[in-house]
Design a binder for these strands. Structure first.
Lengths: 125, 125
DNA sequence: CGAACTGTTATATTTAATATATAACAGTAT
DNA sequence: ATACTGTTATATATTAAATATAACAGTTCG
């Protein structure tokens, strides 16, 4: 479990932690049943408050990705890859919706957008 | 000048105002040299503080879209459509970058994304 | 059992961004 | 002059995020 957070990011720390854990679950870096670092250990590693880590874990549990048991810790639930993929697909759709709205207002064509997509997809393989 | 703001939006009111004015400038609803509502008038209309409107106007001026003169008011600068378009293009690129990153991690293909784009472009013409 | 881990909860504080209220001041137009 | 403009300063309120600290509770293991 290798979490990297940015203190200066506008994105809240607990959100950054959530994202990285989801990604680790998806990429199988974190396997089913695997125990996550305890809130205090991770807080210590990241030099942040354990309450911030707890917030991330609480939300990950509410979203069905991990399970926390008092006294024991938090572990990765039988992962629902489809769930994760769907969640991200929704995020992508939201971004696309923003793009389409902006494009229509500011006279950017469908082809221009598609070209950008294609170019950026090829980059940094 | 017809500004609509949402009190419940997570987007700051001054940002909403900025966006709507930029859009109005782009669509020529607000023409070159046209006087914007005074900060107090708009604040009154929207039932918000004039300081919030001032913040929006100040930033619009810093970004080169309007000009404010003490005692007179704020008016639309000779508009630089290209500037606006470029600004929005950057916003779009940022969104695309997010999309591409997510897609690569979560196994969503270029074609899937392009299809979504095409579908959403056709919708709500 | 007891020590050393886990997580939980409550309280209080800090910081930054947003938004507000109010009052006083300054420029412009008529 | 008056009535608009914008400007500035001060103070306050709200919210989200993050923190610090202390006390409490469950689990594990020697």
């Amino acid at each position: 479990m290798n979490i990297i957070i940015s203190n200066s990011s506008s994105e809240p720390i607990y959100e950054q932690i959530k994202k990285e854990i989801k990604q680790a679950i998806y990429s199988n870096e974190l396997k089913e049943e695997e125990i996550l670092p305890s809130v205090r250990v991770m807080a210590n590693d990241l030099k942040i408050s354990f309450l911030t880590v707890k917030k991330a874990y609480d939300e990950l549990e509410a979203e069905g990705f991990i399970k926390t048991v008092q006294g024991k810790g938090s572990y990765v639930l039988p992962k629902n890859l489809e769930l994760l993929r769907e969640e991200k697909l929704k995020e992508i759709e939201k971004n696309i919706s923003t793009i389409v709205k902006l494009s229509k207002i500011y006279g950017i064509t469908e082809e221009e957008v598609v070209n950008l997509i294609r170019i950026m997809f090829e980059e940094d393989l």
